Amino acid sequence: SLTLTVRGEEAVRRWYKWAQAHNLEVEVETHGDEYVLHIK
């Protein structure tokens, strides 16, 4: 499992696509303009 902090929706989309390509689940938490992604 992997936890990432990114800024901006574009980065979130990029990681989301990456995770889907690897059959992984993604949980997204929003903290202001930062997003915490939990990839499992």
Rank of each mutant, 00 (worst) to 15 (best):
V28W: 07
T3E: 06
N23V: 03
R7P: 03
T3S: 09
K40N: 08
T3R: 11
V28P: 01
L2T: 05
W15H: 02
E10N: 08
V12P: 01
E27K: 11
E9Q: 11
D33P: 05
K17W: 10
V26S: 01
H38R: 12
L4S: 02
E25W: 13
L37N: 00
T30F: 12
H38I: 13
T3I: 13
E27T: 14
T30E: 14
H31I: 12
E29L: 09
E34K: 11
L4V: 15
R13H: 09
L4F: 08
H31N: 13
V6L: 05
S1A: 11
Y16F: 15
Y16K: 15
L24M: 13
W18V: 02
H22S: 04
Q20S: 10
E9Y: 13
I39G: 00
L37F: 04
W15N: 00
V26Y: 07
E10G: 08
L4D: 01
D33H: 07
V26W: 06
W18P: 00
V28K: 04
A11D: 07
V12F: 15
H22P: 00
E27N: 09
N23L: 06
A21D: 13
A19T: 02
G32V: 04
E9G: 06
R7A: 07
D33K: 06
K40E: 04
W15E: 00
R7T: 11
W18R: 01
Q20A: 13
H38C: 10
K17N: 10
E34V: 15
K17T: 10
Y35K: 03
K17G: 06
D33L: 07
G32P: 04
R13M: 12
G8V: 03
V28H: 04
A21W: 10
A19Q: 01
I39K: 00
H22W: 07
L2M: 11
G32M: 05
L37M: 06
E27M: 12
E9A: 11
G32W: 03
E25M: 12
H31P: 02
D33R: 05
A21E: 14
H38D: 02
Y35G: 01
N23H: 11
A21K: 11
E34F: 15
G8C: 07
K17S: 10
W15T: 02
R7Y: 13
V6I: 09
L2Y: 11
R13S: 08
E27R: 12
K40G: 09
H22K: 06
S1Y: 14
Y35D: 01
V12D: 00
H31D: 10
A11E: 12
R13G: 06
V28I: 14
R13W: 09
V28C: 11
E34S: 11
Y35P: 03
W18N: 01
E25V: 14
K17R: 12
V28L: 10
R13I: 11
Y16I: 15
V12Q: 03
W18G: 00
I39S: 00
R7D: 05
K17H: 09
Y35T: 05
V6R: 01
L24W: 12
T30L: 13
E10K: 10
G8S: 15
L4M: 09
K17V: 11
N23G: 15
E27Q: 12
R7L: 09
V12R: 05
G32D: 07
A21V: 10
Y35R: 03
E9K: 13
D33T: 07
I39R: 00
H22N: 11
L24H: 04
W18M: 02
E29G: 04
V26T: 03
A11I: 07
L4A: 04
E10A: 13
G32H: 05
H22L: 10
A21S: 11
N23S: 09
R14E: 10
E27A: 10
E29S: 09
H31Q: 10
S1M: 13
R13T: 09
V26R: 00
R7M: 10
V26E: 00
D33S: 08
K40M: 10
K17F: 10
E10H: 09
G32C: 04
L37W: 01
Y16S: 09
W15M: 05
V6K: 02
A11K: 05
V36G: 01
W18I: 03
T5V: 15
V6Q: 02
E29W: 10
Y35F: 12
E25S: 12
K17L: 14
R14I: 10
L2Q: 05
E34I: 15
V36L: 08
D33E: 11
R14T: 07
V12G: 03
A21R: 09
Y16A: 09
H31Y: 12
T3D: 05
K40A: 07
E9M: 14
R7C: 14
D33F: 06
K40H: 14
H31F: 12
T3A: 05
V12L: 15
A19H: 01
V12K: 06
A19P: 00
H31T: 08
Q20Y: 10
E29Q: 09
K17A: 15
R14K: 12
G32K: 05
V28R: 02
A21Q: 12
W18E: 01
R7Q: 11
R14Q: 12
W18Q: 01
L37A: 01
E9H: 09
T3H: 11
G8W: 04
V26N: 00
Y35L: 05
E27H: 12
L2S: 04
E9R: 11
H38N: 06
V26M: 15
H38A: 04
K40I: 10
H22M: 10
V36C: 08
L37H: 00
L37R: 00
H38Q: 06
G32E: 06
Y35W: 08
E25T: 15
Y35I: 07
R14V: 08
Y35S: 03
E27G: 05
G8I: 03
T5A: 07
V12T: 03
V6T: 02
T30R: 15
V26A: 03
E25H: 13
H31A: 09
R14G: 07
T3G: 04
I39H: 01
E9I: 15
L24C: 11
L24G: 02
R13Q: 13
V36Y: 06
W18H: 02
Q20T: 12
E29C: 11
Y16T: 15
T5W: 07
V6P: 02
D33V: 06
V12S: 04
W15Q: 00
L37Y: 01
A11N: 11
L37D: 00
G8N: 10
L2V: 08
K17E: 14
A11R: 05
V36S: 03
A19K: 00
H22V: 03
E25Y: 14
W18K: 01
W15G: 01
T3L: 07
S1P: 10
E29I: 11
V28S: 03
G8T: 15
H22E: 04
R13L: 12
T30H: 13
L24F: 14
D33M: 06
E10T: 08
V6F: 04
L37K: 00
D33N: 10
H22Y: 08
G32R: 04
L24Q: 03
Y16D: 02
A19V: 05
R13A: 12
V6E: 02
H22G: 02
R14A: 13
E29N: 05
A21Y: 12
N23R: 07
R13N: 11
A21P: 01
G8Q: 04
H38G: 02
A19E: 00
E29D: 06
I39A: 01
L24K: 05
Y16W: 11
E25A: 10
D33Q: 09
L4I: 15
L24R: 06
V6W: 01
R7S: 09
E34N: 10
R14P: 02
V36F: 06
V28Q: 04
L24A: 06
T30I: 15
Y16G: 03
R13E: 11
V12E: 02
K40R: 14
G8P: 01
V36N: 03
V6Y: 02
H22D: 02
L2F: 15
H31G: 04
H31E: 06
E34W: 15
T5F: 07
L2H: 07
T5M: 10
Y35E: 02
E25K: 11
N23Y: 07
E29T: 12
I39E: 00
S1Q: 13
R7W: 11
I39V: 05
A21T: 09
V26C: 11
V36P: 00
E9F: 13
H22A: 05
S1H: 14
R14W: 15
V36T: 11
W18D: 00
G8Y: 04
E25N: 10
H38Y: 11
